[in-house]
Design a protein around this nucleic acid. Structure first.
Lengths: 241, 241
DNA sequence: CGTAAATTTGAATGGATTCAAACGTGGTGG
DNA sequence: CCACCACGTTTGAATCCATTCAAATTTACG
């Protein structure tokens, strides 16, 4: 487990960035309320907070009886579950537009611990707002249906691409996934430990594969938090095993 | 790949068991229409078929632009996706009460090939029926939400329990899962090939572990299609690695 | 600048895969 | 009804890959 997470399991550096302004939200068309009219939103707008979590901060913890779902506006969040031996396994990555905590809508407690991998801005939506709007807004139901299906698709991608095949192939899949979520050709750098937890391999193996990729010229560091990958070569590695 | 599936990819032995009789359905309280009143159901009842698929028959194929979702009434269905190398990976198991093909509701094509593992009875519900009811039935939305969340939970269980750890531990998890779906202490027997496809291991490894479990007295065959497992010993195996 | 954390690398071990062969079993046709 | 064949399962031996444990090196941060 990461020292940073052990030291401050409940990060207190979360900043409140104001009330949400859904009407003028830059990514409004990609979030949960995209089909709700401005008038209807007025009822609940004052309950929605706009927050910014630093890297390693937890949005919520496994088993908490939570009261809010979260829309990711920018950044990256990992959802982790724990194995019987205490190790952690990352079961999903949330990117801008994704929703965290949808399980609350069907009455379950949070099923994961959600931790920001980098500076992450979110909208925190109280369940009361969802319930209030949900009653006469089939559009909201439809938007939630889309997120649920997306969650299923994402989870299955973790199974077929990130938990199957050799370590090399899994890392290649992961880099392509990270790349596709970034605007340009470069993909954000992930710690070796998180890589391992996502791919079901050890930190050392993740490190070995990444170091090898760098030597072979398949990846190269752009900055501290970004690297560039040769997608063609990655696809080649995937298909030849 | 199984010979049986290669020989008859589109099994024709599917039997039509009559129109659905949701009003008197034995598992009504567990299926999609559980909260819809009998009167409202009348509109669409005549479009819902009750079918029986033999083992190895496909409910639908990956990529098909389907027109129906399926409720599993009895039996067991595997959802498979294909790897770049042509191998298959089972990403979910559907049991009575589960729904297959929910992705159609949000406009996607079938994302898996769905194949019956044993004699399986289903209700085939045309999308038109869902759309017709959906308009003014938030209860249906809620039921679908429950299935979506269940799909996410199931997929994540495949990640943390069935795709993580040693082969022994994965097989132990699988046996416990199969056992929990069966009424009594016995769990249905699964082919070694399907085990491998579910656990991300080879058929031979699955066979070795199962043979070893039998020798150690952890499992024992009841009939051709059922075996009995010592849950305590299985939990022990899981926790000690 | 110094310390703690993260990454990289090495060597030995262990576990899973591969390829091959033997075995058991259910179904088919002679 | 029995013999045979195809298919699934089991087993063996060699190889390969990932893990483990340890140490060295680099990076990040106060």
């Amino acid at each position: 487990m990461k020292q940073s997470e052990r030291k401050k399991p409940y990060c207190t550096d979360i900043t409140w960035e104001g009330r949400a302004d859904c009407k003028h939200c830059a990514i409004r068309e990609r979030v949960l309320f995209s089909e709700i009219s401005n008038e209807d939103l007025d009822d609940v707008l004052h309950t929605i907070d706009h927050l910014c979590y630093p890297a390693h901060a937890a949005l919520y913890q496994l088993g908490e009886t939570g009261k809010s779902v979260f829309t990711i506006r920018s950044g990256l969040v990992k959802l982790i579950q724990y194995l019987p031996n205490g190790n952690q396994r990352i079961v999903r990555l949330l990117k801008p537009g994704s929703v965290a905590g949808l399980e609350l809508v069907v009455g379950q407690d949070y099923r994961h611990t959600a931790i920001a991998l980098e500076n992450t801005k979110v909208c925190r939506i109280p369940m009361a707002a969802i319930e209030h709007l949900g009653i006469d807004h089939p559009q909201l139901s439809r938007q939630m249906a889309l997120r649920w299906q997306q969650s299923v698709n994402d989870a299955e991608r973790f199974i077929t691409e990130l938990s199957t095949g050799t370590a090399e192939s899994r890392v290649a899949h992961l880099l392509l996934l990270l790349q596709s979520e970034s605007s340009k050709g470069n993909c954000r750098a992930i710690s070796r430990e998180d890589m391992g937890a996502m791919l079901g391999i050890t930190t050392e193996t993740a490190s070995r594969v990444m170091a090898d990729f760098k030597r072979r010229g398949i990846t190269q560091d752009i900055s501290a938090h970004h690297c560039q990958c040769d997608a063609t070569k990655l696809h080649q590695i995937i298909s030849e095993q």
